[in-house]
């Protein structure tokens, strides 16, 4: 068996992820997180009456809950079943940053927490900013030309 035949054989033989089950779990847990977000929005909105403050408060609350659950070691257990359901909402981003911060605490606050905190979330920030900038430039140019 050569390398190509072997990798094809392994591809065929390996147990596959249960996609339908994973999708169903992701749908319901992701939906549940969004429902909690909407519930918070309704509460904050009735309290403040300000749309902008309400949006910020919802984000901050979800981030807080996610970081808290990460810190007490629960988030990863939920995420094992929830998959993309806990990864895609803002909670996933908060978990990626806080889990890296906790993990690297043993190397100190500067070389550990500070340097390694964005090891997973870093690329999202870099390419998020980059694509945002490109979009902004196109939007600006389109405004002048059209």
């Amino acid at each position: 068996m050569n390398k190509k035949e072997y990798t094809e054989y392994v591809e065929k033989k390996s147990k596959k992820s249960p996609i339908y089950k994973n999708c169903a779990f992701a749908f319901f847990t992701g939906g549940a997180i969004c429902t909690i977000g909407q519930g918070l929005r309704d509460i904050y909105s009735s309290l403040t009456g300000d749309e902008k403050i309400t949006s910020s408060l919802v984000c901050v609350s979800l981030i807080f809950i996610s970081v808290l659950l990460t810190g007490i070691g629960v988030y990863d257990k939920i995420a094992r079943f929830a998959g993309a359901g806990t990864l895609v909402p803002i909670t996933g981003f908060a978990n990626a940053v806080s889990s890296a911060a906790i993990d690297n605490k043993s190397e100190g606050y500067i070389l550990g927490v500070g340097a390694k905190m964005f090891i997973i979330a870093g690329p999202v920030i870099v390419f998020g900013l980059l694509s945002g900038t490109i979009y902004g430039v196109i939007y600006y140019l389109a405004g002048i030309l059209l």
Binding site: K16, T70, Y75, D76, A79, A82, L87, S99, A100
Partner: peptide, 17 residues
Amino acid sequence: ERQFRFPLEYGGQRTPT
């Protein structure tokens, strides 16, 4: 895990293999 994969508390899904 720290050296080869993700932080311990990171919420990822493992593949069956």
